[in-house]
Structures are given as structure tokens and as C-alpha cells.
Design a protein around this nucleic acid. Structure first.
Length: 151
DNA sequence: GCCAACGTTGGC
DNA sequence: GCCAACGTTGGC
């Protein structure tokens, strides 16, 4: 089992939006980065724990716990010309982008980026590295356990 | 709104 | 296949 951190902009889908979804589940659409896509395609399995992270907002940080609830399958938004994530090079016969489904486990207090940075135990987390832009990153089991114990 | 970082694009 | 230009990300 692997552990993950997945970034979402609360103006798009925040933790409260996730809680309001049918089945408290959302398709993780819109990933347009090959490395992040490959994590979903090659490594994510149903039941993998996920740290749900709010980014590009007033209070960036971990907002809840979630889990992978469906293996990667084609991202519908790539096929829709009206969608901002439309990709003219993608076809149904050979889709370019995939997404998993993510289900809420529980909303937590917000563990802000400042607090995350304050713990030496978390210093190597990818999401805290300068210049990091990857929206899906693996998390060490030890880091995950540490965060869980502080939530 | 600024700007550093970095992935992608496209001309050669 | 190189690499400069460009666009996007995301914290501040």
C-alpha cells in the first residue's frame, strides 16, 4: 500500500465540496502532467490513503483524509470541447489522460503549510520542496503516520 | 499581483 | 535532439 498527497484548489473542489458529493467521492479529473498521471495509472490502488491538500488559496494545507476508491480510468473532461481540460489530441480510442476516484475518509482540522514546514520530520516531503508543482506526490509511511498523529 | 521554478512546445 | 521561449503553478 502506498500513501499519497493530492492537491486540489478549494475554489474548484475543496474538502467541503468532497463531503457533499454523492458517495463523498470525486473523479480526480484535470491532471495534465505525465508524472502525476503515471502515479495514478501505475501505482495507485484502491484503498491507498490520501492526504487531501488545499492549494492556491488563502490557507494552503492538509484539510482531510481520503482514499483511492477506483483504479485509474479515462478522464472524461479530455473529450469535451467545452471543458477547460479539453485535449484535442485525445480520443476515446486512445485516451491520453486518466483519473482515479477519491473518497472522503474524514475532514480534519487544517494543518497549514507553515505548520508542516515547522516539523523536521516532514522536511523531505515533496510538497514542501521549493519549486514543487507536482499535484500528486507519494508520501512516506513514516511521514503519513506522523501527520496522522498530529491531526 | 509578483516571481521563482519547472514542464512543454516548437524551430532549427 | 537541443534549447530558448513560453505558459502554468502556487506560495507569498
Amino acid at each position: 500500500m502506498r500513501y499519497w498527497l493530492m492537491k486540489s484548489e478549494p475554489s474548484d473542489v475543496g474538502i467541503d465540496d468532497l463531503a457533499a458529493m454523492p458517495g463523498q467521492t470525486v473523479a480526480w479529473y484535470g491532471v495534465r502532467n505525465y508524472q502525476a498521471r503515471n502515479f495514478m495509472r501505475d501505482q495507485m490502488r484502491v484503498g491507498d490513503p490520501v492526504l487531501f491538500y488545499h492549494s492556491s488559496c488563502a490557507e494552503p494545507g492538509i484539510a482531510g483524509l481520503a482514499e483511492v476508491s477506483r483504479l485509474a480510468y479515462p478522464d472524461e473532461t479530455q473529450f469535451d470541447p467545452a471543458d477547460k481540460y479539453f485535449d484535442p489530441k485525445a480520443t476515446r480510442e486512445s485516451p491520453r489522460w486518466l483519473n482515479v476516484d477519491v473518497r472522503l475518509v474524514k475532514k480534519t482540522r487544517l494543518m497549514g503549510i507553515k505548520e508542516l514546514r515547522s516539523h523536521p520530520e516532514l522536511a523531505h516531503m515533496r510538497v514542501l520542496q521549493r519549486g514543487n508543482r507536482l499535484s500528486i506526490t507519494p508520501v512516506d509511511p513514516a511521514e503519513y503516520a506522523f501527520i496522522l498523529s498530529r491531526l
